[in-house]
Amino acid sequence: MMKNKTSTPSQKQDRGDATREKLLTNSIDVFGRYGFDGATTRMLAEAAGVNLQAIPYYFGGKEGLYVAAAEHLASIIIAHVGDLRNAILERLARLDSDGQAMTPGEARDILTQLAQRMVALFVSRQSESWARFIIREQMEPTEAFERVYTSVMAPMIGMAGRLIATILGEAPQSEHVRLRTLSFVGSILVFRMAHAAVLRQMNWQAAGPDEVDILRRHAAELVAALGGGKEVRP
């Protein structure tokens, strides 16, 4: 006589974690394509290949899934740049602790590494769904935008701003430095936000390894140009 097989608590936990992961990963793309209002719970469940009841069970509903998807997106981006970000923050903290200032040369080197990492990430295929999600939130910010901004955007922009301030020899919180930082970040983001236009202008079929190498060199040139000419003030 065969005995009924029952799942252990750890097996149930693993299945639950897998279901949550599927919903979070796939909902970023669905929400990015159709927006919060356009994405139905059925669409979200089908994209993840899970039961419709999994959404209210794990997230309390579509709104809960939307906010959780934003947090998941932030964690994915951090995972791609976290090692470099942590190394930069540790270096800055060590200098602050020792009462020393970073040299403009070191700031350029670090900013170049950061810009090259970001441009390579932004032209990757995997960042397409992230961009759709974030662009929608830029247009009509919700709580989801606050999660991504607080976790990823603000720290990265702040870190870039401090490096740019060092290069320019100005205060990090000055209006001029903040504007220069936003312009610099925008010059990197354009390769994702205007991806189709970039491919058309460059006569590229896709952003493969050779194209990424070109963009990495371009990112280094953008850093080298900082402070190279006369900074015009009103």
Rank of each mutant, 00 (worst) to 15 (best):
I135R: 14
P141K: 12
V67W: 01
R180K: 12
A39C: 00
Y149E: 14
A79E: 13
R216F: 00
R178W: 04
Q116C: 13
R125I: 01
M193P: 00
A93Y: 00
L114N: 10
T103L: 10
P141I: 10
L95S: 07
V223M: 05
H72M: 01
L73I: 03
E46N: 07
L163W: 06
A39G: 02
S174C: 07
V119Y: 05
E71N: 10
A107P: 08
F36M: 10
E71W: 09
M159T: 15
Q113I: 03
T40H: 01
M139T: 15
D29I: 04
D14L: 15
I88Y: 07
G61E: 06
G169D: 01
S174P: 10
G208L: 00
T150W: 12
A194W: 06
M139L: 15
E175I: 12
R178Y: 05
P209H: 01
L226Y: 00
P172I: 03
E143K: 15
L44Q: 00
A224D: 09
D98V: 07
H80S: 12
L168K: 05
M202S: 12
V67E: 04
M2I: 12
A197R: 11
A196F: 04
S97G: 01
Q138C: 15
A224I: 00
T19G: 11
A225F: 02
T25R: 14
A154W: 13
N86Y: 01
D17L: 15
D98C: 11
Q53C: 07
Q205F: 01
E175T: 14
G227R: 03
M193K: 02
S187N: 11
P9G: 10
G186T: 10
G208A: 02
A68L: 01
N4F: 08
R180M: 12
A74P: 09
A87T: 11
G169P: 06
I214V: 14
G61F: 06
E21R: 15
S174E: 05
T181S: 08
L226W: 00
E211N: 07
F133N: 08
T166W: 05
I28Y: 06
S183D: 11
G82Y: 07
D29N: 08
T41M: 14
G32S: 05
K62Q: 03
A48M: 06
R85C: 00
G64P: 06
S129Q: 13
Q201S: 13
T6Y: 13
D14T: 15
A197I: 06
T150K: 15
N4S: 09
I76Y: 09
K12F: 11
A165P: 07
Y57G: 05
L24G: 04
S174F: 06
T6H: 13
V119G: 08
P155V: 09
I88R: 07
I76Q: 13
H80Q: 14
